[in-house]
Design a protein around this nucleic acid. Sequence first.
DNA 1: GTCTATATTCTGATAGAC
DNA 2: GTCTATCAGAATATAGAC
Lengths: 223, 223
Amino acid sequence: MIPYLCSRTHSNGKDMTQVKKVIDASTEERIKNAARAVFQKKGYVAARTRDIAEEAGINLALLNYYFRSKEKLFELIMFETLTDFSQGLKDVLNDECTTFEHKVELLVANYLNMFTKEPDVPLFILSEIRNRPEDLFAKLPVRQLLENSVFVMQFREKTATGQTKESSLLHLMMNLLGATIFPFVGQPLIMALGGVDKPQFNQLMQERKKLIPVWIEAILKTE
Amino acid sequence: MIPYLCSRTHSNGKDMTQVKKVIDASTEERIKNAARAVFQKKGYVAARTRDIAEEAGINLALLNYYFRSKEKLFELIMFETLTDFSQGLKDVLNDECTTFEHKVELLVANYLNMFTKEPDVPLFILSEIRNRPEDLFAKLPVRQLLENSVFVMQFREKTATGQTKESSLLHLMMNLLGATIFPFVGQPLIMALGGVDKPQFNQLMQERKKLIPVWIEAILKTE
DNA sequence: GTCTATATTCTGATAGAC
DNA sequence: GTCTATCAGAATATAGAC
């Protein structure tokens, strides 16, 4: 604990995503916003530059004027998306000033807020990672996120009484990310299974903000 | 409980997927196997009929001779994939002869076995559902899977002591499917996060067969 | 900077020989 | 049934006018 470094505040209501203004933006910004929307909704291959141009309200040629190619534009969007995503982990996991339990709450709340606003992002990221894993991990040093983080140290301390298996940490991460992210990845399936609409689904996500941290605690006590 | 109807047996080791023989199969079967592999790996749009033909070791024209079009071939593969997937739920959820706890164990074990063999299937299904929801739900009556199932009745009985909120069932399904399926959907991410290789990943999935049912019980006790 | 028109490449599908 | 060669359409990217 390094108290004098702990001036940053973390509130559950804090948004990690910025909803960019689509109106009154420069042409370049409007193209980027359109590209983000279309890429996230359809994925790289299915997204057509014509769709993006139309969504941005500009001509097809202008897209190449600003960004040279579909590929370059995609890489830019993907980099920003991955940065937002990993920032949600990074900031929380390495905070010296919060407890393990508080970190879990913050992670869950942050991601639930983020993906309630942009529900297509998780499936987009995971799909594109499948299509070009090496490419994306080069830009996202995901291993370092966890390794030697305050979060992991706190986890080891917390579970030190029993003999913690090395795999426990990874199971925890799968459960934490699974409980938080999976509902969005499987959103149409979940909505169909439960017969709920979008507002009801979002209500469920709000409930999960409180529930998941409790569940995680209960799970950790079973070991 | 209807004991005299309970002759079927369920073993954890039972496979719900059949690994089709690729060698010594008819041309039609070889094309289907190739199509399944390519579609599941790349998704509908990114998969090229030329890739499928090459994978099957036949000519491009032959693919259209047997299946008329890429679209028709895809619909066939998707139908089979969804049938396999929902069968894994259906058979277990409506069995009069197993307890709630046993159903959970069977669901988890079945899906973990299935997806350990075919890790691309979950992301494939969820991606394609996103691309054409109405199309796919027409073929997969997913709402009926849960509604009025033995599993749901048993769940209501089990949680009848406390006041069970209607949303609890859906949270349970999200947790159950999330804990089981999410690791496969996010496989590259999980492997990178933990610095583990494929065999180690599969080992973790084996561990989860025992762990997830215990966790689910612990979670239900928190309500 | 922005547009229209066009070049180029890729991909699904078919014609026709064997 | 299986192949080679080819067509038709679509999508990315660019040339060139304004």
